[in-house]
Design a protein around this nucleic acid. Sequence first.
DNA 1: GCAAGGATATCG
DNA 2: GATATCCTTGCA
Length: 190
Amino acid sequence: VEVEAYIGEDDLASHARFGETARNRVMFGPPGHAYVYLVYGMHACLNVVTEPAGKPAAILIRAIEPTGGVALMRSARVERAATNRRYTGPEQAAADQARIERTPGPRLASGPGLVAAAFGLDPSWTGRDLCDPDGDLRLEDGPRPSDDEVVATPRIGIGYAGSPWTEQPWRFLIAGHPSVSGPAASRTAR
DNA sequence: GCAAGGATATCG
DNA sequence: GATATCCTTGCA
């Protein structure tokens, strides 16, 4: 329900801006493969490579609507919280678990780090073929939102890129959808 | 409003 | 080999 586009080496917001490196290599390969990287030391982000080999481009999956497996996502969130957080004590772990158990189903993967956490993904998933119908993680056809439901905004967290990249309206989301990222007030705007 | 956390890219 | 930075989250 929410994605961002990162288009080519010229896009100074993209990991491809430094050219091909060990981390971003998969972006330079064929489309339909996963690129999962770590940000801020603890959050994984899932991207899908989108352009033919040689042109590094990908979309970042910023939020998904859970349509099944909600209990699994919840337990994966608890597990990820436990590995990411440095606990001051067991009561901290219990608090995290309680918070996640209170989280409404539609909000379980309502942010890029949360998508990876809910699916149990980490950077080792990089390179997976998301078009393999037998794969553990795969893209499938689904209902397509009508164009008038979709809003475009600038991308999040890329201030370092500078103009014009910070202004490009390359974040796309379903306006007002309960599963998109951000606080409630910002989610209803359109 | 900001700390946590570790990999990464870029310097010395 | 050291360090500033990062496509974030959840707390104070």
